[in-house]
Structures are given as C-alpha cells and as structure tokens.
Write a protein that binds this DNA or RNA. Structure first.
Lengths: 404, 404
DNA sequence: ATATGTTTGTTTTGCAACCAAACAAAATAG
DNA sequence: CTATTTTGTTTGGTTGCAAAACAAACATAT
C-alpha cells in the first residue's frame, strides 16, 4: 500500500475507534481527538459515510455542552453496517451472541444440553441451527461478517483444539467440523474462553484508555489475559498469560494440571472444594459452599481466609511484574473475592512495596455472557484495528490460547 | 509536525536503526529492508549524509555477496556524529562508559571508592571529574549529547531517588546535585541499574529481532526488565518488572525489602550467604561461597540445590506469564546458575506445561559494565527512536504540529 | 576489444493526503 | 439587528513517496 493511502486508512481506523468509544461526535470533535484539521476530518468522515460505516443523525440539541457557536452535526457508527457472531462452548450449555457494528449486543441465545459433555459433532450441529435462527432476525443477512467460538481449552495455531479438559475433548479438529456445519458462514477462529472474556472487558468504553490491566476468569480453572502498554501480551509462541499455571507454591489443595503449586491449585473452584473437603466438610458445588460460608460455617470461613491469602499472593506477583492499573476478575469464583471485602486488598498491599500502587480490583457481574460476547468482539475489533494505530493490533491479535 | 514530514522522520529513524543493526548497507539494501523504492531510500540517505549522521565508506569489494551488477556504495553510521555517556553507581565503585553513534564502546573508566557507601555529594563530584577527563579524549566535545546514570534503586518520575538500599540513600535529590556538578553536560535521567543492564542486552545486534525476553540482574538484589512484543514493559506508573520483589513464597532466607517471600529473599547474594550461614557455615562473599562450592563442600552443594529449585520456580512464573523466547541472566549471582548445568533447565521444565516451550537461558559475562553501557545506550536508543517505528512512540504522531 | 546482462543510484513526473486560510452557515448573546 | 462563536466546506499549496526512464559500474561471454 502506498504511503499516503496507509496513513489515510490509519486515520479512518482512528476515527472509527473514537466513534466507538464516544458514541456520538461531530466532525469537529473528531478533528480535535485525532489532532487533525477540520477539513481533513471532514474528508475522512465523507469516506466513511459513503462506505456506510458512519451516518449522520438528527441532532438532539437540547443539552449541548457548548452553548455558543454553530452546533455540530452528530455522527455515529451505523449499527447495521456489520454484525459479528460469537459463541461460547461450555460443558453444560452453548451460548450465542450477536454484536452489531456499534458494539451493542443485539441478540443472545443459550442452549442447555440434554446431557453434559457433548461431542464436538453435536456442538457443531446445534450451533449451526442457532446461528441460522439468529441471523434470520437481522435486518441484513449479508452484513454478518462471521463467527468466532470461545473454548475452555488450549487452541493450537491451526485452529484445532489441543486440549479442552472441561469438555473431555482432545485433539479434536473442531474448526474444520464447524466450518462444514456452518456452510456459507465463515468461522474465523477458536479462542480460549479467558481470552475472549478479556477482550469483552477491555473493549468496554470506560476502559478504552486503560493501557495496563489484567483479566482473570476463574471457574474450574484460572485463565487470564494481560493488557500491557495497550496491547495484549502474547509471548513468542502465543502462550503467554497462562496465569492459572504459574507456580505460586509447591503444593496446593488439588492438582489440576500436573504442575505442583500452580495458582489454580490454590484458588480455583475445585481447589476451594478440595480444601473444604480436607477440613472434613462437603460441598457439591461452589454455590453450596458459598451458602455455607454465608451462614457462618467455621470451616468455610477458614477456607475463605486461606484462599484470600493465596489469591492475594498471586495478585501480588502479577502486580509486581506488570504494574497494572486494574485487575478485572470474572467467573463464578469472583464471588469469593466479593466476600473478602477489604481483606483481599489488605493482603495484597502486604506483599507490595510502599511505592507500588495497588491496582483497582474489579469484580464483574456473573451473568456469564463474557466469553461469547468477547468472541464476537474480537471480530469487531479486528475490523476497527485493520490498519489501525500501529501496534494496537494486527489481525493475529488474539493468537494466544490459555486454559481456564 | 505535518504528516509527510512525520513519515519522513520515521523512515529516517528506520534507516538509522537498520544501519545500526547491520553495520554496513548500500542504498539499495536500505530500500529493500524498509520496503521503499531506491529513489526514496536515496533521498533519505542524502538527508542523513547532509546532517552528518551517515557517511559513505570506500568499499571493500573483495568479498561481495553479489557477484554481478554494479556494486553498491557502502554506507555506515558516522561513529563520531554523537557520543553518549553512561555511568553506574555502585557501593564500592563508580563506572563511566562512552558510546559512540555506532554503538561502540569508546572508553571505560572505573573508580574505586576509598571507603564504600559514599554520599551522593562525593559521587557527584567524582563523576564530574571522570566525565571531564573522558570527554577530553574525544574528537569532538560538542558531539557529547549527555549523561545517564544507573542506580541500584528505585527512581521516581521527577528523577529524584526514592530508595537505593545498597548505597544507604533515601530520598536524595541526586539528579539535581549531579546537574549542578556537571555544569554544561546535560544529565538526562537516572535509571534503575537492572533496567540499564537490560537495555544494553536488548540492543545487542544478535537480539535485535527478539520480541519477547526477560533480563535479570542478580547481585545484592534481583532486578529485572521485561521485553514484550518488542517494547519494554513499563506498567501504569513505570514500576513494572520488579522481579526481585515478586512473592514466590512466604519466607525466604533473608528479608531484604520487608516483603516476606520475595524472590530476592531466596536467590540473591545475601540470601545465598544467609542460607549457608543457617547451615552453620560462613562465607564472607559470594566468591568465597563459590570457592567452597567448587571444592565440594556439602553444605554449599545443599545451598545450590535449594537455590536451583527456588530460582527455577521464579523463572517458571516468568515463563508462564510472559512466554519469553529468552531469559538473560547477568550479575555475579549468574555464576550460581552456571554451576547448576542441566538441573536448572530440568527444574524449570518440571514447572511448565508440555505445550510451553522453555525459554533459552543465557548467562552473560560478568565483567560488570552492563549497567553503565546500558545507561549510555538508553540515550543512543532515544535518538534512534525519536520519531521511530510507530508503536514505540505515541499514536498521535500523524497530525498537525500543535507545538508551535 | 566489444557487446551483453545485471544491479545500483539518480532524475523526472504524478499523485494522494494533509494543512492553512478564507468563507459560508447556524446558533447564542446583547 | 448586530456581533460573536463555532462548525463545516472550499481552494491553493506543500510534502514525501511511487513509477518509470535513464545513467553508471561491474562481470562475463564472444
């Protein structure tokens, strides 16, 4: 691509990104944000409008910031310009989300399997049905750009699954099967669910300026994703941010991965239940454990107290190495953190130097659509970053795979 | 800066960077590497030559790669275009290095203090003398661009020292003192010594393409630096990569920082000596300990064996989170790793998933000029990256010049 | 010696994107 | 109604890069 054209594409991408984060802007606003002249901004907007990506919208002039001067013409992303599908394969259910060009969730369907741990063929077939039904409701079938699928496992570079313990899948050529079942619909990639969750979070409008953060998805395992300097940390082979596998000690309450002392052997759901069992009590699910905890069960409180210490030490390692502004914690196990109140932050502080500011600890809602939304959001982001601010993302942005 | 000018500056920086890593190139070589036409490359080279940054050099046509066609005119960086000074303040000695524009070490002086732990005033005065003497030997005084100083401690954003335990300094306004003592010579910044060491390593020509690596400097403490996706990992407040402080356990052999279980409490020089002392033996220095080890002392071997396990676990945490291609280990304590032979790598592997490739472990020489060279190299790199390959700079690079 | 082929480096022409400045339009304040 | 402010558009100018043609330098074959 010739030089000037590359610059133009980049500025168009920056304009789209600005519109995505602010929602509504005038041409003059765009000029200010991108530090271009109004004339250039106008030219860029004209291109985007002619392609249908952006549209003028009848202004709501009632509550303007600016009281004087000619009011700007409001611009926004054309929501119907494109749609992105994202799915999340769980052991018990299958979820499908549809995002529009503005990043809004337009549809969401969940299918609960008759019996858990379905085969990949069953998943492929069922997902194809769900996709067809979801697309039928959209205003423009041709605007659907494709499907990404989040998986609780490790995905290799070819898109085959290397390992998905919660599903009992090993070396399943899932993408190939999916592509066959989907017909015309392009299946872009399989993504680790923790990664997908992270993408959903980091594209939140309020986090758009966050340059350094850590995202944790805690359920049967602990998966994660690291945002560093505005980019996802991938590592040489795309296997970075295996947060659940980092050896924070030498033992642990269980042994999920074969790595003694791995973080998830201390703080994941199975670890919590195993620890509780070691104290002579039984809980069949995290929900049951939390109920016991809330009723003041002493053993459960002991488990929470130890969990807080171990979790804080893991967070301290992350903070010491990465100095993130924020750590976002999702998954069912986030409920544990919610019950530690100030203790967790206190324990974290105890492990840090005075000079190190502790990150903001944020617990997300547990509605659980994170990974599916994230899978779709990955496609969305890919379009926006196509020629975008260099360094913020090649199409290969999310090659990493981490088990959760 | 107008758009085309910004692009030009960037291409000039890319050309300089290419020349730095390859040493000698023709205009056609530059055109190929930068993916520009020969005419554009010629134009860029002409600018650089007129500024004196690059020079043509009488070709040595005896052993050309290319046997046919017109031979190119060899180009190289003009070594005397600029000089960069770098110093390293230690408890026992003070070191000064001079790098030229081509990155070659042109001079090196070490001063040993009469008594250890000098005051900041003493260091400032002595360093000023050394700088004056070193500059006198250079071909062009005006080409000296400034001085950076590496410090074994934490530096805040204003450039004052927050803490330097090995020197017994606390909240010393060192940069201000230095600037006063240096007169005309600009003192650009104070840098943590481990960071400086890392910069010296990552600018090595053979590592120029490495995108993900970890650098460890192990002496009285453990400092580090993380290269991720080709950029130094800084974190929100610039305090990332405090590798020595990450809590890998709950105890440790000593307590250097007040953080129980910090990595350096297990594997730094004081930790090794403390552990040895706990086994009822004495060693006054690491050298003495290594001598005992080499003579087959059983307690020393026990210490090494435990050290290997602890160190491996720390490396496993780094590998799990960052997936680096290489971990470079410097400082005197690197000698310990040298004596573990295969055990260290084996222990590291035990902590990793099968899928995770262990990084190359590299032990650098222990001549100890790393931090001083790195401090100077930081200045060198600053010039080269001034408008450099986008991503190392700011994204608002391509707009109008609002600075005027 | 001469011709041929290959690669380098330069020159010329054209283009795309941006900026600066001037201008027209749409609102508010007095 | 006029002055002021801000928006959006238009025009002219600048800049760096690409494409293509050309000149130069060397190796090799005849």
């Amino acid at each position: 691509m010739s030089m000037p054209v590359a610059v133009r594409k980049m500025n168009e991408a920056r304009a789209l990104e600005a519109l995505f984060s602010k929602g509504i802007m005038s041409r003059a606003d765009i000029a200010r944000v991108l530090e271009l002249t109004r004339s250039t901004a106008s030219s860029i907007v004209a291109s985007l409008i002619s392609e249908g990506q952006v549209q003028e919208v009848s202004a709501d002039n009632s509550d303007r910031e600016q009281k004087t001067g000619r009011p700007g013409i409001s611009l926004r992303l054309n929501p119907d310009y494109a749609f992105y599908l994202g799915a999340d394969v769980g052991a018990k259910d299958l979820r499908l989300c549809v995002l529009d060009f503005a990043g809004t969730l337009r549809a969401e369907v969940t299918h609960r399997f008759d019996k858990p741990n379905p085969s990949s063929e069953v998943v492929s077939a069922r997902l194809a049905e769900m996709v067809e039904k979801a697309c039928a409701d959209l205003p423009d079938q041709a605007a659907v750009k494709g499907l990404n699928v989040a998986i609780p496992g490790i995905v290799d570079l070819t898109g085959d699954i290397l390992r998905a313990p919660p599903l009992n899948w090993r070396k399943v050529p899932f993408r190939e099967q999916l592509a066959k079942a989907m017909g015309e619909m392009p299946v872009h990639k399989l993504i680790n669910d923790a990664n997908a969750f992270a993408v959903a979070q980091l594209r939140r409008p309020d986090l758009i300026d966050t340059q350094d953060a850590v995202f944790l998805l805690m359920d049967d395992g602990v998966g994660g994703c690291i945002l560093s300097g505005g980019r996802l940390l991938e590592g040489t082979t795309g296997l970075a941010a295996e947060i659940g596998h980092m050896p924070i000690g030498t033992k642990g309450h269980c042994n999920l991965t074969g790595i003694h002392g791995a973080f998830e052997n201390y703080v994941s759901r199975p670890a919590i239940l195993a620890h509780y069992a070691n104290l002579g009590r039984q809980a069949t699910s995290l929900t049951a454990f939390l109920a016991a905890l809330d009723q003041g069960d002493a053993a459960a409180q002991k488990v929470l107290s130890v969990w807080t210490q171990d979790f804080a030490r893991g967070l301290a390692i992350l903070t010491t190495l990465l100095n993130p502004a924020r750590i976002v914690i999702g998954g069912r196990v986030a409920e544990m953190a919610r019950r530690t109140e100030g203790d967790l932050l206190g324990a974290l502080r105890d492990h840090l130097l005075e000079e190190t500011p502790p990150p903001v600890l944020e617990l997300t809602g547990t509605s659980g659509e994170g990974p599916a939304v994230g899978a779709a959001m990955t496609l969305h982001h890919q379009h926006f970053a196509q020629f975008g601010p260099l360094g913020s993302g090649r199409p290969e942005l999310l090659g990493a795979d981490h088990s959760a």
